[in-house]
Amino acid sequence: MAEEFGNYLKQLRESKGLTINQLAALAGISGAQISRIENGLRGVPKPATLRKIAEATEVSYEELMGHAGYLTEAESSPEGPIPVWATSKDKRDFRQMLEDDGELMFDGIPLNKEDKQRIKDVLTGLFWEAKQMNKRTQPKHNPGKE
C-alpha cells in the first residue's frame, strides 16, 4: 500500500508542476519525508499529514484518504475518515470519543477552527492506529480450551 500511495503522490505532485521541495514547503513537512513517501520507504502518512498534503496540492482530503487506504472509495462520515476494517463497535467507540463538544482551550485561550481541526486530525489518526494495533495484539478466544 505504501508503494502504491507513493506512486500516486508522485504523479499528483508532478501533475501540479511541483518539485519535492516546493510541495514540502507548501505542506509544512520535510522534503525528505515527501521523498520517502514517494519511494515507498515510509508507510502511508497519518491523516494529519494527508490533510497538509491535500491543502498544499488543492486535492480533497477524502481523495487522499481513499488513496492511502483509510477509506473505501468515496466513504466518509461526519466523524471523519473511517478505515474499511472498522467494526460497528469501533465506529461507536469513535463517535463516543468525539461527542464531547466542550470548548477546546490552550493556555486559557479558546482554540480557533483551524487548530480544532488539527487536533481532530491527530486524534482521528491515533484512535484508528490504536484500534488497529489492538486488533493485531489481542489473543483469539478459543472456547474449547478454557
Rank of each mutant, 00 (worst) to 15 (best):
residue 2 A to S: 14
residue 4 E to K: 15
residue 4 E to A: 15
residue 5 F to W: 09
residue 6 G to N: 03
residue 8 Y to L: 05
residue 9 L to F: 02
residue 9 L to C: 09
residue 9 L to Y: 01
residue 11 Q to E: 15
residue 12 L to R: 01
residue 14 E to C: 05
residue 15 S to R: 13
residue 18 L to V: 04
residue 18 L to Q: 09
residue 19 T to R: 13
residue 19 T to Q: 06
residue 20 I to N: 03
residue 20 I to P: 00
residue 22 Q to F: 10
residue 24 A to T: 04
residue 26 L to K: 14
residue 28 G to W: 14
residue 31 G to C: 03
residue 34 I to R: 03
residue 35 S to H: 13
residue 36 R to F: 00
residue 36 R to E: 05
residue 42 R to S: 07
residue 46 K to I: 06
residue 48 A to H: 08
residue 48 A to Y: 10
residue 50 L to Y: 02
residue 52 K to P: 06
residue 52 K to H: 13
residue 52 K to G: 06
residue 57 T to R: 06
residue 58 E to C: 06
residue 60 S to G: 06
residue 63 E to P: 02
residue 64 L to F: 00
residue 65 M to E: 01
residue 66 G to E: 12
residue 68 A to K: 01
residue 68 A to V: 02
residue 69 G to N: 04
residue 70 Y to C: 06
residue 71 L to P: 02
residue 72 T to D: 14
residue 74 A to M: 11
residue 76 S to T: 14
residue 77 S to I: 03
residue 78 P to V: 01
residue 82 I to C: 00
residue 83 P to K: 00
residue 88 S to D: 15
residue 89 K to A: 13
residue 89 K to E: 12
residue 91 K to W: 12
residue 94 F to K: 00
residue 97 M to K: 10
residue 99 E to K: 10
residue 101 D to W: 08
residue 102 G to V: 03
residue 103 E to K: 11
residue 106 F to N: 10
residue 109 I to S: 04
residue 109 I to V: 13
residue 110 P to D: 08
residue 111 L to R: 03
residue 114 E to Y: 09
residue 115 D to E: 15
residue 115 D to K: 15
residue 117 Q to M: 11
residue 120 K to L: 11
residue 120 K to D: 11
residue 123 L to C: 11
residue 125 G to Y: 02
residue 125 G to V: 12
residue 126 L to K: 07
residue 127 F to G: 10
residue 127 F to C: 08
residue 127 F to E: 05
residue 128 W to M: 00
residue 129 E to Y: 02
residue 129 E to I: 01
residue 131 K to Y: 11
residue 134 N to L: 15
residue 135 K to I: 04
residue 135 K to V: 07
residue 136 R to F: 12
residue 137 T to R: 04
residue 138 Q to I: 14
residue 138 Q to N: 14
residue 144 G to E: 13
residue 144 G to K: 09
residue 144 G to C: 07
residue 146 E to Q: 12
